[in-house]
Each structure stands twice: as structure tokens, then as C-alpha cells.
Design a protein around this nucleic acid. Structure first.
Lengths: 137, 137
DNA sequence: CTCTCTTTTGACGTAAACGTCAACTCTCTT
DNA sequence: AAGAGAGTTGACGTTTACGTCAAAAGAGAG
């Protein structure tokens, strides 16, 4: 019977801050907002591997413009199996909505890249034309 | 000699608000921040087709988590040719950086979708297993 | 034991991005 | 003329997401 140990690695607040380039204040704020739930060693916070994974997801979410409140809801999607199987089907629905949003963002992102490329092409033509004019002077 | 007319369509603040689901305050705020520059008919603002295009880009940028300040800088990339060819090569550099950021975001977004799909798969397995257990009871 | 380093808990401050009145002004309709 | 509708300019308020001290506390080095 194998114990559920082996992944008992923890990180100090400083370590995580270095790794993810955030301040302690940020991590404490996320804890206050219940996005993270580090355990304690006396006063000190000990961030588990799970906390670290959640932090990654939080920061990723932020990069896509999700609010912390939205991220909080979504975090659960990525951490099923922690305890009981809570309203699993409802969770799946949320996941689908989230997935749809991500896909939609992807499409928009592709459009943005396409637009940008098009503009760059125009700009390059203008540059070329100007060089040509100079050469003709 | 064809005049530069023909695109002289304008929109009222209300029209744009409806179309893009924002409030008047938002558009005035964007003007104050110099992201938009509607012309005037007496007191009233008249938003040109160009303003409308810029607004689209602003909202798109926001959806990807760019700040208004960042968006302001980027807006110029999409509106070359308005007047003189201002430091075109510098603009192209900015465009490349922006492009790189967009590509990077797309990669992350793909990763996010992949992760989510994986979690959904796990959840579905759990559901299936639970059904199985019920059936075995 | 003293000093330094890391961390902790308040508590107040702040920048960004609007929201929310209040008080007018136009324009148009009835 | 009078009222409704859309829009305008202040000006202050609010939420989000932290920043920035201050004061104290434990852990380890010398």
C-alpha cells in the first residue's frame, strides 16, 4: 500500500516570487482572495506543488485578460480529484464554456496577427517606394 | 482627380455604444486618453469610420489583456499612411515586437486549451467510472 | 547573544478604467 | 411654448490588483 507521500516538496514565498517574478504581496493577495491556500509552518507560508501549479494557471489567465474572480472559478476545473467528486457534470459544463471562450480568443488572436501582418506589408511597400523615389532623384 | 470623399460616414456616440456594448463614458474616456479623436458638430462628437476601426482594435486589445497605454502605442501600427510616413522603420520594429508577443500568446493559449482538454478527459473518465460503480452495485 | 535575512501582519496608498450623479445644451416633436 | 431624448462637461466615487511602509517575529551565522 503506497502512501500518498513523495510529492511533499514545498516552496517558500521567496522562491515562488523569484521563479514567477511576482512580489510576496501578490501571493498574499492571492491567498486572501482564496486563489491559493498555502499551508503553514508556524507563521510561515509553505507553498505546495499544487499551489505552484495554481499560480502558473493564475498568471496564465491574467495574461489573457481574465480577472482574478474569473480565474478563481476556473481554477477548480484544473484541480478535480482533490477530495470528493463535486458536481462533476456542472464542472464539465463550465469547462466547455471556458473552452469555447479560449477558442474564440484564439480566433481573434489569429485575426489580430493577420491584420498586423497586412499592415506590416503595407508599411514595407511604402518603405520600398520611398527608396525607389530616392534612387530616382 | 478623385476627391478623398466617399467615406464621410459618421456615427453618434450612442450608435457606437450600441454596436460595441460600451457606455458613453467609456468612449469619452478613450478620447481623453487620446485613443480616439472624434470630430465635432458643435458640441456633439462625431465618430468617423476610422474612429470606429480604432475602437474595434482597442476592444480587441483589451480582450487580450493589454492596457490602454499599450494599446495606444499599438494603434499607430494599424493606421499608417495617415499623413506623413513617420519613422517608418521604427514603427516596423514595434510591429515585430508586437507580433512576437501575439505569437507567444497564441502558443500559451494553445497550451491552455490543451491542458483544459486533458482535465476534461480526466473528469469524463471519473464520471464513467462512477457510472460503472453504480451499475455494479 | 547579536546581527542579518526572510517573512509576517496590519494598514494606508495608488494607478487604471471606468461608474455615477448633477446641471446644462440642442434638437425635435407635439 | 413645452417636454422628451440624446449628448455634453465637470466632479467625485468605485473596483481591481496590487505597492509601500512600519513594526515585530523566528531562524540561522558568526
Amino acid at each position: 500500500m503506497m502512501t500518498n507521500a513523495m510529492t511533499e516538496q514545498t516552496f517558500s514565498i521567496g522562491e515562488l516570487c523569484q521563479e514567477f517574478d511576482v512580489t510576496p504581496r501578490t501571493l498574499r493577495f492571492y491567498e486572501y482572495k482564496e486563489l491559493l491556500a498555502p499551508i503553514r509552518d508556524g507563521q510561515r507560508r509553505l507553498f505546495t506543488v499544487r499551489d505552484r501549479a495554481r499560480l502558473k494557471l493564475i498568471l496564465r489567465g491574467k495574461r489573457f485578460g481574465f480577472s482574478l474572480a474569473e480565474i478563481k472559478d476556473l481554477l477548480d476545473l484544473y484541480h478535480l480529484g482533490d477530495g470528493q467528486v463535486t458536481q462533476l457534470s456542472a464542472t464539465l459544463e463550465t469547462a466547455e464554456r471556458h473552452r469555447a471562450e479560449l477558442i474564440s480568443k484564439r480566433e481573434e488572436l489569429d485575426a489580430a496577427i493577420k491584420d498586423l501582418d497586412q499592415q506590416v506589408a503595407v508599411a514595407q511597400k511604402m518603405l520600398a517606394q520611398r527608396s525607389g523615389m530616392r534612387a530616382a532623384e
